[in-house]
Computed example of a mutant assay.
Amino acid sequence: MTDHSSRPRPFLSDNAAPVHPRVWEAMRNADLADSPYDGDALSAQLDERFSDLFGRECAGLWVATGTAANCLALATMVQPHGGVVCHEEAHIEVDEGGAPGFFLHGAKLVLCGDAHGGEGGKLTPEQVAARIDPIRDDVHQVQPHAIAITQASEYGRVYRPGELERLADFAKVRGLGLHMDGARFANAAAFLGGSATQAAGAAARGVDSLAFGCIKNGAMSAEAIVLFDPEQADLVKYRRKRAGHLQCKGRYLAAQVLAMLDADLWLENARHANVAAQEIASGCGERLMHPVEANELFVTMSANEREALRAQDFAFYDWGADAARFVTAWDTRENDARALGKAIAAL
């Protein structure tokens, strides 16, 4: 593991964490001539590996970013005149630079939910119904075509299997697709005991597509789109090419995804990050804005208190005027997490 002893103790983002050594090794092992694009031996393994992981037939395709994974998957469900129902603080709304509208050729994001209403960025069927029921079924209004949820949510909250089943049942009754942004899917699965099926929903009562996050969890430049209707994979393949995401040497992306799946490295890394987050949470007490269920902590503190932590070489982001966000990663050192928890407790 890389020595970070001379650097600030990093809790800015799991995006900034180093690449896991086993991922580097897998990429070096892929450094052999093979078929270009996605015709290589490694890319050919993804469908079977993800089908084994989720216990149902599915297709797995690599892309370079989570934004592309979300938008390409949603493009199979949503027509340009339609809408995607999502939380008002969902990544596709707040942090993807208008990419959904670009990839979906103008389709609208239909916002609902309240991060401060107790659900911490999660949606319920009741919230979605309240938002879409007033929409008239005529050509003058944008019709909802899909629901997009985030697992774990933007506030680190985890959908339980029962919550996913209710959303999936609601979506099917309403004729809506259900997509999951799984940038921190591994952290959610680790919280739920290590079950990918529980974190995505069981067959027939789960999501239709998933952006399976790898980069935040130890990969370098690869995410996976998992489609639980394999027939949609052909459509995504064409859209991936058209969007400029069909890389010539796709085997290096496939190698990263497979390395994360091998021996459950994706879970091992997530568990480490979750444990580190709990170590910090032990010192936060009533400052916590949301229960800590994955690897993010949202902690109330004044500007002076935040500066006091930075003076101790802790690196993190401000969260509005009166709070901070701390994110742990696969490489977070136990002594750094413990030190941060103690430093917050001492404020």
Rank of each mutant, 00 (worst) to 15 (best):
A90G: 12
E119N: 14
L167R: 04
K237Y: 03
G320Q: 02
W24V: 14
Q198I: 01
A343K: 04
G118C: 09
A152E: 04
A329F: 02
A243V: 10
L258R: 07
R287I: 06
L288W: 05
E293P: 01
E163I: 10
V85W: 09
Q198P: 00
Q312P: 05
D234Q: 06
N304F: 01
N274C: 15
H140D: 10
A17R: 08
C284K: 12
I225N: 00
K342I: 01
R239E: 15
D137E: 13
D38T: 07
L288P: 10
Y155Q: 14
I92S: 03
Y317Q: 11
W319D: 14
A204F: 09
G206P: 12
R22Q: 13
F316Q: 11
R49M: 05
R22S: 10
Q278A: 11
D264R: 04
R325V: 15
T67M: 01
L309A: 00
S13V: 02
G218W: 07
T300G: 09
G156V: 04
L347H: 03
L258F: 05
R131T: 10
S282F: 00
G97A: 11
W319I: 00
E154A: 13
A315C: 06
P10Q: 14
P18V: 01
Y37C: 07
A321G: 08
R160D: 04
T76W: 04
A345W: 03
E154N: 15
P18A: 11
G39E: 08
D3R: 12
G118F: 07
P10I: 02
